[in-house]
Nucleic acid binder design. Structure first.
Lengths: 291, 291
DNA sequence: AAATATACCTGACTTAAGTCAGGTATCATG
DNA sequence: CATGATACCTGACTTAAGTCAGGTATATTT
């Protein structure tokens, strides 16, 4: 009842009976699950046959047969890879794209129905994000991106929104020292986002000036992803980037209202120092020497 | 990215690839998924062959073969139903129970591993409960129980805990008029819990005195289940029970801090009335006439 | 008591998925 | 340019699941 294990198992039961039905729903368009999965994977941008095989965990023989079957239906064409004629590339035909869209519409409708019935969709979506992040934890990637990218901008927007929720006096970016994008890109600095199956779950910026000292800025982890070690991985990525840029001293400012972040800094070799700027929001300052 | 549909679909992907693997893990004990599922269903208390067939959605022929196979392995015995010799009852042998326990241990370990890796298991479990409740929404049952039952006591404990969180001055049951259990049981009243796959998600008490007036008490819905219409279903059950007991007037007290509940009352035919008791916690009073 | 329905069983079949051993064309390398 | 590796293909096979048409024993109805 209150037993965590029982709760997880209950979740598993709920999910296998409901989401399992979703998988099966790919049927009903006169195609078996195997070929439908291949069609969908191609539609989602996987074209390399080896990649498809790997992604779908299919035997090479089986993969070939599925592709032949899709070709016979006129939904897919294959051609040799321009760089290596042994490899093949699969693409959807116009008819194939229509079929793919039909599957997409079906999945979207199902997803839509699931939230539409709920009268608190925000909470439900947040819960789904959290579960998905925990389940897909091993597939969370840390990617270096331009801080003006869509995914970076999304993270920053969420970061500001969270600060204004958590600071008693609110938060206004204009009052803070918002770093220039170029300071957080090679060759001066770097910007990283954590991605789980395409969804941004966190970010961090390394703001350099060309010298030996750089600052860590904008460390944020989505509420759905807390407890998965994403913050630490982001910080590791930033530190590693700093080392590559020959930076020897890292500094950062933070606010004592952000307890989790502070804990992370203290656990990973940062030491508290004196205030080094006059930004109105931070009240805690840290430094870390990279050797 | 921020698109709700994309988030649901991402959840589905995460879950099918991870939880799907769980299903497959029933293998690895030298048994196919089909027989393993039957063994597990029997272990979980389903003994009637027709019931098993129905639950697992199996053809009668296939079911027979699975049972024969389990009998040959010495894990299951079947015998005719005492009331109807056409029907059969399946039971685990000692060896069968051992095998079943082995599967259970396996599932439990997997569940354990999932939470153990997370550094905020409470939040994760709450999220899983919420998703499970939403997915299993159509299978939420409202059962009448003794208010001293384990499931009822669990709900009441959570109810009190929530009140003390939500009331600025906290909450102490001793100061409130805690109804006697017998007042919330036939023939004076009733008590209902909402159950989703065994997990209690909410409760409500109908406290009668033998007369034509009764009170609604202890309406609570688990945070994980809000937005699914559980509160309304509980209230409907209580009203129906009241009608059966020839009660014509229902009353209740509540606190304006409990906005969702208040909204529900106003939407379902309750009208605000004057204070009718001196309980220190409520500040809002409602009445509903049953015809 | 006869007719009909029900619950389960058996055997023969189909389907989808998956495995495996070659086979062919292409590429990389000494 | 010969050799071996690689990428994909084909055909023959296996496995697990599922379907379907009877069949037997028991229960219910008339």
């Amino acid at each position: 009842m209150l037993d965590p294990i029982a709760r997880v198992r209950r979740f598993n039961r709920a999910v296998t009976s409901e989401v399992g039905a979703l998988d099966t729903s790919f049927l009903g368009r006169g195609r078996t699950l195997g070929v439908a999965r291949v069609l969908n994977a191609i539609g989602h941008g996987r074209s390399d046959v080896a990649d498809l095989r790997d992604y779908l965990a299919l035997d090479s023989g089986l993969m070939s047969r599925f592709l032949r079957s899709l070709e016979e239906e006129g939904l897919v064409t294959t051609k040799p890879h321009p760089d290596d004629a042994r490899r093949r590339i699969a693409r959807l035909t116009a008819a194939g794209r229509r079929e793919f869209e039909a599957y997409e519409t079906l999945s979207n409708r199902q997803a839509q129905a699931m939230i539409a019935r709920h009268s608190q969709p925000h909470a439900l979506l947040a819960a789904m994000d959290m579960v998905a992040a925990a389940l897909g934890r091993d597939r969370i990637r840390i990617d270096e991106v331009d801080p003006r990218d869509e995914q970076a901008r999304y993270c920053l927007k969420e970061y500001y929104a969270e600060l204004s929720r958590r600071f008693a006096r609110g938060y206004d970016v204009a009052l803070s020292r918002d770093p220039d994008a170029v300071d957080m890109m090679a060759p001066r600095g770097a910007f990283f986002v954590a991605l789980s199956d395409g969804l941004p779950l966190g970010c961090v910026g390394l703001k350099g000036s060309g010298g030996a000292v750089a600052e860590i800025k904008r460390l944020w982890v989505a509420p759905a992803a807390r407890g998965l070690g994403v913050g630490r991985r982001l910080m590791d990525a930033a530190e590693q980037a700093a080392r590559k840029l020959s930076i020897t001293t890292l500094r950062l400012d933070t606010n004592s209202a952000l307890g989790e972040a502070q804990q992370l800094y203290r656990k990973t070799g940062w030491t508290e120092i004196e205030r080094f700027n006059d930004d109105p929001y931070p009240d805690l300052f840290f430094e870390k020497q990279l050797r």
